[in-house]
Structures are given as C-alpha cells and as structure tokens.
C-alpha cells in the first residue's frame, strides 16, 4: 500500500464518526435503596477495595455503584426478579469508569471481546477480598492459562522464561488491554518488550545485526520456552545462521565443533560497537 490515496481513507473515517449518538441519561438509584434488600452485599462492597476506590474518587461515585455495574434498577426495585437486572455486568459497565483501559475497548481491540472474554472473566467485582491485584480472580499466569494452555505449557520446556520454579507473569510482557499504550511503542523500538529487562541488548550498535533491527528478538528466540539452549529456535546454531548467511568463507569446516557454533568467534550476535564481523561486543 502506498498511502497516497488519503482522501478515501479520510472519508472512511469521517462517515462513521457522524453516526455517533448522544448517550442516555437517567436518575440513578442510590446504594441505600439496594441495601434494603442486599445489605450484606452492599456493606462488603463498600468496605472492599473497589468500594474504597470509588469512595476515594467521590462519594457520589460510590453511591451509584450498584447501578453503574448492574444497570438501571428502577424496574428491579418495583419488581425484584433476576430478569430486570444485569446480574453479570457487561464490559461497557466497567469501561464507564475505567475508560483509561482504552486498549480493551470493544471496538478498537476486539480479540478478547469477540471471543467471549469479558472483564469479569479475569477480574472480580470486589464484593469480597480479591485473590490477586488488581481485583483479579487469580494470578495473571493462572488466568491466562485458562485459555492459552499451549503457551502456558511452553514455560515447562527445559529452557524457559522462569523465575526459579515459577513462570514469568504474562503481564510482564503482554498488554492484555490492548496495544495502544506503552507496550506497542516499546515494540516499535529495538527488540520490543524484551529490552525492558535485557537492557544490555537495547542498542543501537555501530555494527548492528540486521534481523534484530528489523524483526526483533523473535527471529532467533522463542520467548516462552524452548527445548534448545538460550531459547533458540534451532538446536544447531550454525543452522540458524546459515539459513540467512549464504556467503560463508570456505575455511569454516562444519565438521569441527567450534565452527558449528558461529558464536565462538562472532560473539556479538546482537550487534557490535567495535567490529563489523561481530567478533567483539
């Protein structure tokens, strides 16, 4: 795509924009009204972390908390059945306050939403003490593994991203609420989110290694785990290198062990500040 035909793009953007409708506004039912029938729920919520956070924002925010999540309750007050109240709040209810989680907006970053994953699949509403922060039903690695079992299994491989016996938290590298925040911009740099920890490989280098600069770390490494040392995508290092390098001088005798590990001499595989052949870091 050449990005020269900008006018059609602008039209494509503007036409849906003019279809925005004004939001409804209604008088809220207060928390005290809800407490008449649900005193335990209201009390524990108000004392819990979610309720305290709302109170810290404003007393009014806490006062309308029940309706914020469970929807308009006037009909429910008149006729208390489960059919006229949202027992399971939709993501829109959460986003009405947590608009800063813009990456999890159902329209722009839909992968989780359209596959049926909603806020309350990972988070708890805060009616009682949450098992993990922030208001999580479990530690992130446990929650993610509920669906992403294959990725979770990769942390059991011999060479894996582990903190001792535990895997890294998924949220150390992944932005679950989308890619509009810092995560995507780190990706846009050199090496993506990896260099947040592996700062010594941040670059730039006087003599860079092109795949690292163009595609990042994943051209050579498997981030979750691998059966190969150093989380490499190949067992034999020379195979990995020769797949790109087609003009290797003939004195490289691959029957000898040190030639099968190109890194024996070309140590600076991530880039060198001193040697164009990557002989020195």
């Amino acid at each position: 795509m050449k990005f020269k035909t900008t006018i059609p793009w602008i039209l494509v953007i503007l036409l849906p924009a003019v279809m925005i409708l004004a939001q409804d506004t209604k008088e809220p039912i207060g928390m005290d009204t809800c407490a008449m029938c649900h005193p335990d729920v209201v009390e524990s919520f108000a004392k819990g972390p979610h309720g305290r956070a709302m109170a810290a924002r404003s007393k009014a925010t806490l006062e309308r908390a029940c309706e914020t999540c469970h929807g308009p309750a006037a009909a429910h007050v008149d006729n208390p059945t489960t059919k006229n109240i949202n027992r399971h709040p939709a993501p829109a209810a959460c986003l009405s306050c947590h608009s800063q989680q813009s990456g999890f907006m159902s329209l722009t970053t839909p992968a989780h939403i359209r596959k049926g994953v909603e806020c309350l699949d990972c988070h708890v509403p805060g009616h009682k003490a949450p098992p993990a922060k922030p208001l999580l039903a479990a530690e992130p690695r446990v929650l993610c593994a509920t669906c992403h079992r294959q990725e979770a299994a990769q942390f059991e491989l011999p060479f894996a991203h582990r903190e001792g016996s535990k895997p890294f938290e998924c949220t150390d590298c992944h932005s679950l609420h989308g890619t509009t925040h810092q995560g995507s911009l780190l990706q846009a740099g050199n090496g993506g989110s990896c260099i947040g920890c592996h700062t010594e490989k941040a670059g730039p280098f006087i003599y860079p290694h092109p795949p690292r600069e163009v595609n990042g770390c994943l051209d050579c490494h498997q981030p979750h785990g691998s059966v190969n040392p150093a989380l490499l995508i190949r067992h034999r290092v020379s195979d990995l290198c020769l797949e790109c390098h087609t003009n290797v001088p003939s004195f490289h005798d691959l029957t000898k062990k040190h030639y099968r590990n190109c890194q024996t001499c070309h140590v600076a595989v991530h880039g060198s500040n001193h040697d164009p052949r990557l002989f020195e870091d």
Binding site: A17, M19, I20, A22, L107
Partner: peptide, 9 residues
C-alpha cells in the same frame, strides 16, 4: 471513547 466510536493513538 464515545458511545459509538473509539479512537486510540
């Protein structure tokens, strides 16, 4: 994030 439109950049 509006009622029917979201933009993030």
């Amino acid at each position: 994030r509006g009622h029917r439109m979201e933009i993030a950049g």
